[in-house]
Design a protein around this nucleic acid. Structure first.
Lengths: 140, 140
DNA sequence: CTCTGTGCAAACACTTTGCACCAAC
DNA sequence: GTTGGTGCAAAGTGTTTGCACAGAG
């Protein structure tokens, strides 16, 4: 258990947060607030709002990522379960790492719709970084 | 204008649907139901429910795709504005084309968060197609 | 004429928030 | 002791739905 995660984020380490982080750690795939809630309901009696608030706090601190289909429930997962992708700026050729991945949520949808199981993917993103984009905008 | 789209889907061609499709055609990027509604509000007086119902009907018929961030508003766009990606089955080596793209919605989020503008991307998806996946499941 | 689509308003599901109390630092 | 976190219940937000009427086929 790395409950130190909470401390390292500079937020208070409460019983509730420990429980929620523990559940996130156990779940190797994204889960909804509801699922988390139903895991604790019985044993600990943590409030639904607390679940949401904790998840949002963790997301703000960058420890958790949200995924999900448009209009549907939000799925949460610890970022450690993520892999990284790279952005390449076509103007300054800077490379930027991002640890969010759009394919995970997409794969879930795809599986529901088609039955296809995505086991690996490769994603290349190219474009303009914030600075280069603003330059080219203003120069017009 | 390809209002024949409506007829080709086997649904009734109403004034409201024409207007909505026309707006979707005009908008080269995904828009929300709200945005569509505000486009028509003045001129035609179409109901919000009709907008949603039409969009969902179009989505069911496969003429429109939904995208959007988890927990956020749903963005709609005509599929013609999409490009395709390919699924490759690692077992039977079948290739399957899909015309949805998870990167579009992701790019929007990314831009909001980091300012990076994605202008091109390349996505490879590999895994198991529905049949191969079910075989490998059942064989265990 | 029939049946699908529409308007309206009310219901929904999921998520967020205000306030008073409580516990971590 | 201070400040941030929690529980509770109530309010949001975006989307969906039931019903009676209207318009497309």
């Amino acid at each position: 258990m790395k409950q130190e995660l909470l401390a390292s984020l500079g937020i208070k380490v409460t019983k509730q947060r420990k429980v929620i982080v523990a559940i996130l750690e156990k779940s190797k795939e994204p889960i909804t607030a509801e699922e988390i809630y139903s895991c604790i309901d019985v044993q600990e009696g943590i409030n639904f709002s607390t679940v949401y608030r904790t998840l949002n706090t963790l997301a703000e601190k960058g420890a958790v990522t949200k995924t999900g289909e448009p209009g549907g429930k939000i799925y949460f997962q610890l970022k450690e379960h993520h892999h990284a992708h790279e952005l390449e700026c076509l103007a300054c050729h800077k490379h930027i790492m991002i640890d969010e991945c759009p394919v995970e949520s997409f794969s879930r949808t795809l599986n529901k719709e088609t039955g296809f199981v995505v086991t690996e993917h490769h994603l290349q993103l190219k474009g303009l970084c914030a600075e280069c984009a603003s330059h080219s905008d203003k120069s017009v």
